[in-house]
Write a protein that binds this DNA or RNA. Structure first.
Lengths: 253, 253
DNA sequence: CGGCCGGTTGAGTACAATCAATTCTGGTGG
DNA sequence: CCACCAGAATTGATTGTACTCAACCGGCCG
């Protein structure tokens, strides 16, 4: 757990989101200024997690929040039935460590090798107290997260597996685009089972839904982790373009 | 739309949430100081909406956010299938007006007569820029909303209507308790159809689920808007106490 | 008194969950 | 380089549950 001082050329934590005020055609941008990042770098340490490693568990006492440098993390809860529900996939630039009454609300796990900044609560609180601009940026990020969570809930209201899967792929594609990556292909950082846990369906249903999309000539899978959309028109129709490409996305709450 | 200056004895906007740091046994408290409320009162106006009135529609350009004084609001989106999905029920002390790229993300509607503060964006932004403590309180509120949204998503992953309904009732009960109201009875501010739109089931399914809970002697309905829990044990078992009464609730993201 | 809205109830259908093989794939060691 | 293994994914058969469509009830308002 190396200290992350700026002296070593480390730019410090990055927090990215789609702006709530300005139109940016769905692009995320870096919310923090170089100075803010430098200040945060002073209080942050860098931590690494192996693929599959649990970062913390729900109910554990909160001592820090995290900011992903690279890799993918899931935030999840166990249902009494034993199976897990994934509340969110977290990507580089995301923050995690949400708490309630001093305890983490979810468990989190690295689903790829992960590097992250670890920001101890007392330090981050005192930093926030001193820096109104930083606070504002955190507010922006939280609004972004909230929209994401509502979009997730919306996806979950859909009953048909094919539609859910299409919506999920659409979401991933938009995230990729928002991050400025190529969009010829959608890269799946998670396995079928994790898709199911996020989208509220079983592994078998995910598999069948993929099969159905492929059979109908809507998508093509290069390998299990890389999908491309062949028939954009059909795809948008299935995903219910309402949520999708054109329209201005999700507010409220 | 009357100005809401403090001179008239108006205490100003109230923002309530469960704390993320301190244990408060599930109680919400007022996040804002009297001074903050007074400052906000200066920039706020008071607006009223009739039952059923739409406050704004998704995609509309954002000019203000709102803080509920009393009454209940729903935040919803239309699915392409025509039916509405309710993203959240909003209660007194809640904020709404979430946006993305300058447009409201959801539509909102008063489901009871509503009185609210209306806070114009430029004013609230400049107020936030001047008041780091206020910003911190907004952050706390947003974390609360995020937990709520994740809990909602969790509810939506459940397939059985009876379980969903029980979880929904449990949520309402906890909210009531958090607000410090009596909990002998759960008051439903919304109709069956709205419960369905929130919980991801049809009106018919809600009705049948109620019937089932009553038939099993788990709950009793005094009238369609007031429910009490007769067999707490059975109730908690159905709702899957994991989410419920005892344990510290939901973080992450 | 009639109509309407919100809600209940019934019959049949559609869809995913479940349980259970079976196949594929990527990684390992010989 | 290839055979093999373990985990991931696919596929099949059956079942459970909510949806759909539709008729019906009851209270509230005019």
């Amino acid at each position: 757990m190396a200290k992350a001082a700026t002296s070593n050329g480390n730019p410090g934590p990055a927090v990215r989101a789609i702006d709530q005020w300005l139109s940016s055609s769905g692009r995320m941008h870096q919310l923090l200024t170089d100075q803010e990042r430098a200040h945060l770098a002073v209080i942050a340490s860098i931590v690494r997690f192996k693929k599959g490693e649990v970062i913390y568990r729900e109910g554990q006492s909160v001592d820090a929040i995290f900011n992903i440098i690279n890799g993918i993390v899931t935030s999840y809860r166990k249902a009494r039935s034993g199976d897990e529900h994934i509340a969110a996939f977290l990507f580089p630039g995301d923050l995690f460590g949400l708490s309630e009454e001093g305890r983490y609300t979810n468990s989190t796990r690295a689903i790829t090798p992960v590097t992250a900044y670890r920001l101890p609560i007392p330090a981050i609180r005192s930093r926030l107290a001193k820096d109104a601009t930083l606070e504002f940026h955190v507010i922006c990020k939280l609004c972004h997260e909230l929209r994401q969570a509502q979009r997730h809930a919306f996806l979950l209201t859909e009953r048909r597996a094919v539609v859910k899967l299409a919506m999920f792929l659409q979401m991933l594609e938009q995230l990729q685009a928002a991050r400025g990556e190529q969009t010829a292909e959608i890269h799946l950082s998670m396995n079928r089972s994790e898709i199911g846990e996020y989208a509220g369906m079983t592994l078998a249903a995910v598999s069948r839904a993929f099969h159905s999309l492929i059979a109908r000539g809507v998508v093509k899978v290069r390998d299990r982790r890389n999908v491309s959309i062949v028939d954009r028109n059909a795809f948008d129709k299935i995903a219910g373009d309402a949520i999708g490409a054109s329209a201005p996305p999700r507010p409220s709450a």
